[in-house]
Computed example of a mutant assay.
Amino acid sequence: MIRAAVSACILCVAAPAMAAPGGAMWTISQGRWTCELPGDATTPPTPQPENNFNIVPDSSYLVNGVRGTYLLLGNKLTMTSGPFAGRRFDKVGLSLIRLGPDGKRLSLRCVRAGAMRDDYSADAGAAAE
């Protein structure tokens, strides 16, 4: 009996750690991210600069110089602290599609617009200048 219990404990310790619920943890490409509402064949996309942000090191983002953190599990990105805390996105290819409170996709999409300045103090609105 004791031998079986010891064997079971050894197996538990030796077992590989399971992935976090929601998928593997990832990061998003650093740089400026600009957001827009999509257009169609006759109308260009409509910029939404109040939703722009910068991705910086350490799973963090900046909005107007204020830092927050994000978590990307599988293809679901959640801004966990900072000015956009609670916002969720679906990563689709190289874009982020905003999710509503019900988890359904909204029209807003964000794409990486380029590298950020080295000082990491640039605000998301700098891309529009």
Rank of each mutant, 00 (worst) to 15 (best):
R32S: 12
M79N: 12
F53L: 13
G39I: 10
D90Y: 12
E36H: 14
K91E: 13
F84R: 04
P38T: 02
A41Y: 03
G39V: 10
N64F: 04
W33Y: 08
P44E: 14
M79Y: 10
V66R: 15
R87P: 01
A41P: 00
P38D: 02
I55L: 05
N75Y: 02
I55D: 01
A85L: 07
F89M: 03
P49A: 07
L94K: 13
S95F: 11
N54S: 05
G93I: 08
L72I: 06
S60A: 15
G65Y: 10
N64D: 15
V63M: 01
N54G: 05
L72M: 12
F84N: 06
T69H: 10
F84S: 06
D40S: 07
K76Q: 14
S60V: 00
G74A: 08
T43Q: 15
G93C: 09
P44S: 12
K91G: 02
I55G: 03
S60H: 02
I55S: 03
T34L: 00
Q48T: 11
G39T: 10
E36Q: 15
V56E: 02
R88N: 10
R67D: 00
A85V: 06
G93K: 12
S29G: 08
S29H: 11
V92K: 14
T43M: 13
Q30N: 10
L96K: 01
N54H: 02
C35D: 08
R32W: 07
L73P: 00
V92Q: 15
E50T: 10
R32D: 12
L37T: 11
S59L: 04
T78S: 15
P45M: 13
T34E: 03
L73C: 04
P47N: 10
L37R: 10
P44M: 09
T69M: 01
R88G: 09
V92R: 14
T80A: 09
L77H: 06
G39L: 12
N64V: 03
P38W: 03
P83Y: 12
L94Y: 06
N54M: 08
V63C: 00
S29A: 14
G93R: 11
Q30I: 00
F84G: 02
N54D: 14
I28A: 12
E36I: 03
G31T: 11
T69Q: 13
L62V: 02
